[in-house]
Design a protein around this nucleic acid. Sequence first.
DNA 1: ATGGTCTACTGGCCGGACCAGTGGACCAAC
DNA 2: GTTGGTCCACTGGTCCGGCCAGTAGACCAT
Lengths: 231, 231
Amino acid sequence: MDLPTVKVERLYRQISNILITYIRDGHFAPGQLLPGERDLAKQLGVSRSSVREALIALEINGWVDIRTGHGVYVAQKLPDETEVPANEEVGVESLMEARGVIEGEIAAMAAKKATESQLAEMAGLIEAMEAEIGDRAAFHDHDRRFHALISAMTGNPVFVEITDLLWKKRQSPHYTEFEKQYSGEAVARSMCTDHRAILDALRARDGKAAKSVMQKHIRNAQSKLFGARAR
Amino acid sequence: MDLPTVKVERLYRQISNILITYIRDGHFAPGQLLPGERDLAKQLGVSRSSVREALIALEINGWVDIRTGHGVYVAQKLPDETEVPANEEVGVESLMEARGVIEGEIAAMAAKKATESQLAEMAGLIEAMEAEIGDRAAFHDHDRRFHALISAMTGNPVFVEITDLLWKKRQSPHYTEFEKQYSGEAVARSMCTDHRAILDALRARDGKAAKSVMQKHIRNAQSKLFGARAR
DNA sequence: ATGGTCTACTGGCCGGACCAGTGGACCAAC
DNA sequence: GTTGGTCCACTGGTCCGGCCAGTAGACCAT
C-alpha cells in the first residue's frame, strides 16, 4: 500500500501563492499599490503576522517592493517564474555530449584569441595540477579552472558563463559519487596529458586541432570517470 | 554634493544575515538543530516575530529546514552563494557570437535527430509566425519557441537549457530598447524567410546546411535588430 | 512487546499594542 | 507666492503574550 503523504501547507505559503496568482493574473498590475497589511489580513481572514510573513516571502522573490510608511507595491519587472531549476539532474551522456560540442568550439576560438599571458597562466595551471595528483579536491578545482580559463580566452563572457553552467551540472551528488573512481592516479595522469595536448594546440594557434583534442579529452573523461558508456 | 543614502536595514534581514554568517563559519553545522525561536529571540534581544521572519527568509533561500514540532535544522546542502548573477548584462556582439556558434552546432545536430512530428510542429510554428507579422509580442514569443524547438530536437536537455539561458540574456531592458526597430514588417518577413530556410535544411537532414543557415540567420538578426555592427 | 497517556518541548498562528517613517492638509510668517 | 512649521492620518516595523498543534520520550497498564 502506498498512501499519499498528507501535506499541511504553512499559512504564509498559501497566502503568498494567492497573491502571486493575483499578480500574475493582472488583478494587481506592476507598480500598483497593494492593500495595506491590515486590510489584506482582514480580507484573507488571517492575522497580520501571517500576511507579513507572506509579504516577506514575496519580497525575497522579487514580486513586490515593500516601502516603509508607503505600502507594498507590485514590482515593475516581474521575477522569473523559473523557480530555481538550478541544478536539474541530467544524464551523463547528455552533459558530456554538450560539453564536447560546446567546449570544442570554445577551444577552437580560444586558439585564435588567446593572449600570451593566458597561455603562460595555463602552463602554470597544468604544472600545479601535475604536482597535485593524489589530492582529489585540489585536482578537481584546478580542472575547473583549466576549462574556465579556456573560455576566458575567447574574450566572450557568454562562453565563460556557459562553461560555468556546464561545470555546475557536474556537481550534483549523483555525479560526485561516480567520481570516486577519480582517485586512480593513472586517470589523473592521463587527464594531465590531455590538458598538455590542448595547450600545445592553443599555442600552435591551431583551432581545428584544439577542438578535436578537447573533444577527445572530454570523451576520455566520460569513459574514465563515469564508466565506459562513451561511444 | 553627493550625500550617501542612509540605510535602515530591516530587523529580519539583520537577523538572517547574522545566522547565515554563523552557519557559514561553522558555528552551526549542517544538519544541526538550531536553538528554539524563543531562545534565539532572547539571545538576539529581539522579538520572536522578527526571528520567525528571519527564519522564513532563511528557509526560502534554502539555508535551514523548519520542521513543525521539531525545530529548525541547518540544511544539509548549503545553498549557492551565487546570489542571482542571473541576468548579467552582456554585450550584443558577445551574445550573438555565442549564439551563432552554439545554436549553429545545435542546428546541425537537430538535422540528424529531429523526428517527423517535430518537423511538422516547426512548420506550424512558422506559419503561425507569418500570420502574426505586425504583432510584436506574439512574434517575439514564437521566435523563442522556434529556437527552443530546435534544441529540443537534439534530444539533449542540456542544449535546451543553454538555449533558454541565451534567450534570457536577451530580455534585459538594454536589449528590448533596441528591438523597437523590430516593428518593421520587412524585418519580420526576412526572419520568417530565414526560419523557412532552416526548416528546409533540417528536413533535408543536412547538418552542414542547417548550421550555416542558422548562423546566417543570427547574423541577420544582429544587424537588423541591433544595428549593423555585425561583421 | 504493545499500546495508551502524560508531559515537556517545538513551531504555527493570532490579535492587540506601540513606534517610526511618510506625505498631504493647513496655516502663519516672510 | 514661497517658505517652513504643525498636525494628522495613513503606512509598515516591531514587540508582546497567549493559545493551538505536532512531536518525542518517559511512563505505565495491559
